[in-house]
Design a protein around this nucleic acid. Sequence first.
DNA 1: AGGCTTTCGCTACGAGCCGTAGCGTAACTG
DNA 2: CAGTTACGCTACGGCTCGTAGCGAAAGCCT
Lengths: 175, 175
Amino acid sequence: MDLGWSKLTMGDVATRAGVAKTTLYRRWAGKNELVVDAVAVLFDELELPDLGSLMADVEGVVLQFAALLERPETKTALMAVVAESTRDDALRGRIRSAIVDRQKRLVLVGRERAQARGELPYEPDPTASARHTDLIFDVVAGAVVHRALVSAEPVDEAWARDFTLLICTGLAATA
Amino acid sequence: MDLGWSKLTMGDVATRAGVAKTTLYRRWAGKNELVVDAVAVLFDELELPDLGSLMADVEGVVLQFAALLERPETKTALMAVVAESTRDDALRGRIRSAIVDRQKRLVLVGRERAQARGELPYEPDPTASARHTDLIFDVVAGAVVHRALVSAEPVDEAWARDFTLLICTGLAATA
DNA sequence: AGGCTTTCGCTACGAGCCGTAGCGTAACTG
DNA sequence: CAGTTACGCTACGGCTCGTAGCGAAAGCCT
């Protein structure tokens, strides 16, 4: 949506987009809604590669996610809107529907592929399956975000391999 | 430090603390530094319970961390300062030393206990050991934060049990 | 073509918050 | 009791959000 996000101000966004500031307020209710939509578009770039094994697929999406989080506009916008959502219930719901629930597709696709390959068993109970999906999503997304933005250390291939091994081993052994 | 954090403004903080706003600026360089110190104090409350098994210890600290994140002042302050750190290198370093590195003690203690119990093997290589510590810390802290603040779903005992099982199984199997 | 509606740009503005300057005052020290 | 230190208070500049009001451009309908 934007390239530079040097600062996260509506005036800058309007200038960069080549429109007037008032136009932004005619299309979005406020800064929060605009940023959520922008972040959601960025996250839609993510795709699950089909590399032949569960571990390779997970490692691939982890590195994709890390690359997305390295872009200054992504991490700043994402964290700003999450921080704001701790005080705004409506915004929290908007994040859930526009970002979280949308990207769970990656977990669903990955698990289906792993099941088709025989790497993971089928889960007949739909509620247990949904809980499992949520758990995996929070673990993967949370770990990458925490590593990149809180610990502030690089999500490189070595880390991705270690992480993927830990998770996939746990998944295979608990199932 | 404060109780209500209805809003995260220096004026409110000063009023609530019973001091003048200028006094805060005489003690801290700015809002960010103050909030980091406040959050660091809150995180120092965490302790690793000694419940007799690795899984029980992990589950206990996960629930403690979740309880900490449920307090409005904690989650708002933590995410606000993390968001700001995406644009401020000095602040990022301050978070690392005051919060991240400090709380890694929980991982170190937990692993030592598990090794003493024979649940986990000893790791002779110190760099590999440090990498492992960082990985576990990011996975546990990241997953809990993501579940609580991004997915915005409760970190209850059922989730803590599922998560702990996944992680501890992976830890035991990969080691 | 002409009128009508919608959309957009622009300027100006009020409000809230950050961080600072300047001055007065209380408390502590020797 | 003089000197230093720490604090309170008011006022202010600067930045940003979000809104109001007016004018212009573009599409639509007949």
